[in-house]
């Protein structure tokens, strides 16, 4: 966790943090209801349904990483040599912590997922 002093030295932009987390949240909630429809069509039950949600939302986040986060890595790689010591899956340019990017939207989309999952399960199987 960065200290107050580090925030003074390298300040963050609140508008950008808000913009990025809103973009991520919008995508997560949209795709979560889409995955609920798929799980309902496939007729998944209990643990396999939750596993389906977990796998597909991680896949979507990985797609977001590939198409939105990874191209920006070249933005600061030329300027700072500190990027060398960071890992391959580095999200520090756009998000405060990797946890926020990879797992932040999982719980938020779960309610919409279960809603459409049960709805379409009932529609298809009834």
């Amino acid at each position: 966790m960065p200290s107050e002093r580090e925030f003074q030295i390298a300040p963050l932009v609140p508008e950008s943090i808000q913009h990025n987390s809103k973009t991520l949240y919008n995508l997560q909630s949209l795709t979560a209801s889409l995955f609920g429809v798929s799980a309902g069509i496939l007729g998944l039950e209990s643990y396999s349904g939750f596993l389906f949600y977990l796998v597909f939302s991680l896949l979507t986040t990985a797609l977001l990483y590939v198409f939105r986060v990874a191209p920006g890595a070249s933005l600061s790689s030329s300027s700072s040599a500190s990027r060398q010591r960071k890992g391959v899956l580095d999200t520090s340019l756009y998000f405060r912590s990797p946890y926020e990017f990879w797992a932040g939207g999982l719980l938020g989309g779960l309610a919409g997922y279960i809603l459409t999952w049960t709805l379409f399960y009932g529609l298809v199987r009834a």
């Binding site: 300040p11 932009v13 508008e15 950008s16 943090i17 896949l59 986060v69």
Partner: peptide, 18 residues
């Protein structure tokens, strides 16, 4: 979901200097 990902708005750097 790939189409939705490609339709998202581009992210912005959060560090002030970047």
């Amino acid at each position: 979901s790939l189409g939705l990902v490609l339709g998202t708005r581009p992210l912005r750097p959060i560090q002030w200097n970047v």
